[in-house]
Design a protein around this nucleic acid. Structure first.
Lengths: 154, 154
DNA sequence: GTTGATGCTTGAGGTCGTCAAGCAACTGGG
DNA sequence: CCCAGTTGCTTGACGACCTCAAGCATCAAC
C-alpha cells in the first residue's frame, strides 16, 4: 500500500535533499507567475495590478494591501491609482478613521480578476489533470504543512 | 499503511480542487521569492540579478539567458551590464560566432550566488526539517510530475 | 555578393519598488 | 483642553526592471 511512495521514490535511499525541493518549488512558482502575468496582460493588467486585485475579497485599507503584498505603502498608492483610473477599483473613506482609505473592487474589477483566474486555471491548472484524488489530497496536505512552516518565522 | 493520505486528507471526500492547490503553489512561490530577494539584497543584488547569476553554471549566450529568464534580450543587456560593472560576471566572445557574447560568472560571482543560495536555504529551507525522508520523496515526486506537466505545453 | 535571418545593443517610455518628506487625523498624558 | 507622538496616505526623486522599435555587425544560403 505504499503505492505513492513506490510511484514517486524509485529507491528508498533516494532522499531528494532540500535544495532540489526548493529548486522545484521555485521553478513551479516562476512558471505559475508567468502564466498569471500573461493571463493578466490579455486583460491589460500587469502582474502586480492583478495580484493586488486578487486580494480584494472585501474592502481593504491601503496599509493592509502593503502588508499583503509585502511592499512599501507608497508603492500601493501608484498601483491603486492606475487600477482606479481604469475603473477596476474604488477608494472609499473609512467611517471609523478618516485617515484610512478602503480599496474595493468594482463590478468590472471583480469580473476581470475572475477571468484572469479562469484563464490561469486553464493554463497552469491542466497539469493537475494527471493527478487522482488521493494524490491531490497528499500534495495539498504536504504543501499546506510547508506553507504554515514558512509562515511561523519572521 | 495509507499513512500519508490519512495524515493529510482527514476525510476521503475532501478533494482539494485545482484552485486551492494553485493558490498554495502561488503562496509558496511568492514566499520563496521574497526570501531569495532579501538574501540577494544582503549582498547588494536585486532579485533579477541574482536569478540571472543563478543560471550561470557555465558560459551562456545573452540570447540563452533571455530564453531562460523568459524576457526580452534587451532586458538581459541591462542586467548583465550592472553585474559586469560590479565584477560578478564577464562577457566573453564566442569563438565560433562573433555575434555571440557568452556570459560567465567570475570567481566572486560564483561565491556571491553560493552565499545567497545558502542563506535562502537557512530561511526557506528550515520549513522542510519537519518532513521525514518518505514525505520528502513523495513531495519531490509529485512536484516533479507537476513541473514536467507544465513544461509540455507551449 | 546580395539577401535575409540572427545576436546584441541603444533609446524611449512605462511600471515597479524604495526612501525621505509632508499633511491629515487619531491617541494618550498632562 | 492641548499638545506631543504615532499612524495612514500621498508626493517627489531616483533607480531597477521590462518591452518595443530601430540599428549595427555577423552569419548563412542562394
Amino acid at each position: 500500500m505504499s503505492r505513492l511512495a513506490g510511484m514517486t521514490a524509485p529507491t528508498a535511499s533516494t532522499s531528494p535533499g532540500k535544495s532540489q525541493l526548493l529548486e522545484l518549488v521555485a521553478a513551479l512558482g516562476s512558471a505559475q507567475w508567468q502564466d498569471f502575468s500573461t493571463s493578466a496582460a490579455r486583460h491589460g493588467l500587469t502582474g502586480a495590478q492583478a495580484k493586488l486585485l486578487a486580494q480584494l475579497k472585501g474592502p481593504v485599507p491601503m496599509r493592509g494591501l502593503a502588508a499583503l503584498l509585502v511592499c512599501d505603502a507608497s508603492n500601493v498608492t501608484g498601483i491603486v491609482d492606475r487600477l482606479e483610473a481604469r475603473g477596476l477599483v474604488r477608494r472609499e473613506p473609512d467611517p471609523s478613521d478618516r485617515r484610512v482609505k478602503n480599496v474595493v473592487a468594482t463590478e468590472e474589477g471583480q469580473e476581470t480578476i475572475r477571468r484572469v483566474r479562469e484563464e490561469m486555471m486553464r493554463a497552469t491548472g491542466d497539469a493537475l489533470d494527471a493527478f487522482d484524488d488521493e494524490e491531490r489530497a497528499v500534495l495539498h496536505g504536504l504543501l499546506e504543512r510547508l506553507r504554515t512552516g514558512l509562515e511561523r518565522r519572521g
